[in-house]
Design a protein around this nucleic acid. Structure first.
Lengths: 231, 231
DNA sequence: TCAAAAGTGTTGAACGTACACCCATGG
DNA sequence: CCATGGGTGTACGTTCAACACTTTTGA
């Protein structure tokens, strides 16, 4: 049992991890790779790796993600939290800073052979504390969908309200009415009509208006109702 | 210029910092200590220090804080974010994970001679990226005051609504009406009357009811109004 | 009996939800 | 002309801000 160099007992290594989420097949999925080595051989882990000299944590997670997906396809990236339980990795002392990354519906980045998307509601055996981290990522996403324009990062560039509804249903895990979703997002000036409309399919139905998100940067749109400053 | 051991170029040190906030003299203040050495000699810094083997980040910040204040007087502690700019410390490569700590009004912990409370609205020269971190702590507090029971961590154990109003005004930085504050917090079941009442002072006035927070643990009280699940 | 401080009642606006109804299309 | 899916109108509930008014006290 001498796999710990002396250095490790005075300085942890610093890793970054990313919870990359995308709506696929109508469910919220996370990008995981299968470990080929101990510890947690055969379990599924979040992409990431060690911090290198001269880079920030965000640089680092972007660099490691580049090995798994085309990073240009990540529409939003934000820091979640840093996990520090000394026993989180049984083989070495390692801190991990987790990020949340979002990919728009419809993209299908190439991924390596060991890497696959998994439904967050039906995770396989996960490595280390990654299961907990994935759930933390989902909770962060759910909150942001409610009080910000975060939907832009999951929805395709343009969409009908029926399509957007499916995105919100999959991410939030509960029913959402397209009618009311439209009104909420329009009142907040988060979405706007493109002017186009989508022709109806063979089953008929009125053609749907096509919308897009007004902004591609995260913005808080719902200043808290309570305890707001006087007008 | 040989103060960097070779080790530092492959592994950063890991520090913890705390933004400890308290309402003092009717303003939101933060606990800082004055640096006696370079770099940033004479500037004011957040309390904290290096992570030790076998401890979590939260253990670490509690241990370092113990050197500055009585840790039992910290009513709430939560992780803020991890700062990783390679140049944030000009003398060494160091990551810092910042925490937000809150102290109830009225306590006056003993602090060392180099340590003092400063109004967040009127900060002295701050060291490293600590100025930015303090503002991030304030923003986190402001959000939580609106949608959670975080007030318990700033308010004294029992209080009148006039007193609680002053706490919210100082922390939020805008006017708050005691009448409406009461209704919001009572409806959310965040505060409850103790049954006592505070006799009026020499200037007269109706005696005030005394309240307390129902809970001493952080709880989200205002589930987001938007996009909530159907009932 | 008046000023001060606290508490109550009430109104109105903003925001979301629910649901009935209308519109445009394909077969 | 009817089923299908999309869009609009409207009523209602909840939440909170604003403000007038009432209560209880000290001097």
């Amino acid at each position: 049992m001498s796999r710990k160099p002396a250095q490790e007992s005075t300085k942890p290594s610093q890793a970054t991890l990313a919870v990359v989420l995308q709506i696929r097949d109508g469910t919220l999925q996370v990008l995981l790779w299968e470990r080929a080595r101990e510890p947690y051989r055969g379990s599924w882990a979040l992409p990431g790796g060690l911090l290198a000299a001269g880079e920030t944590l965000e640089d680092s997670i972007r660099r490691h993600l580049a090995a798994k997906v085309d990073v240009r396809e990540i529409s939003h990236l934000e820091q979640l939290a840093t996990y520090s339980d000394p026993d989180r990795d049984p083989s070495s002392w390692e801190l991990a800073t987790a990020y949340l990354g979002l990919v728009q519906l419809g993209l299908d980045p190439d991924v390596p052979g060991d890497t696959r998307w998994h439904a967050v509601d039906d995770l396989p055996e996960t490595a280390f504390d990654h299961g907990e981290i994935i759930l933390a990522g989902r909770e962060r996403l759910r909150g942001k969908l409610s009080y910000s324009n975060a939907g832009f990062a999951l929805a395709p560039p343009s969409f009908t309200l029926g399509e957007l509804r499916e995105v919100y249903v999959a991410a939030l895990g509960h029913e959402v009415s397209a009618t009311n979703l439209r009104r909420v997002l329009e009142r907040r000036d988060v979405i706007e009509p493109t002017g186009e409309r989508r022709p109806s399919g063979r089953t008929g139905g009125r053609p749907a208006e096509v919308f897009r998100f007004r902004d591609r940067q995260l913005a808080i749109t719902d200043p808290f109702a309570a305890l707001r400053p006087r007008r």
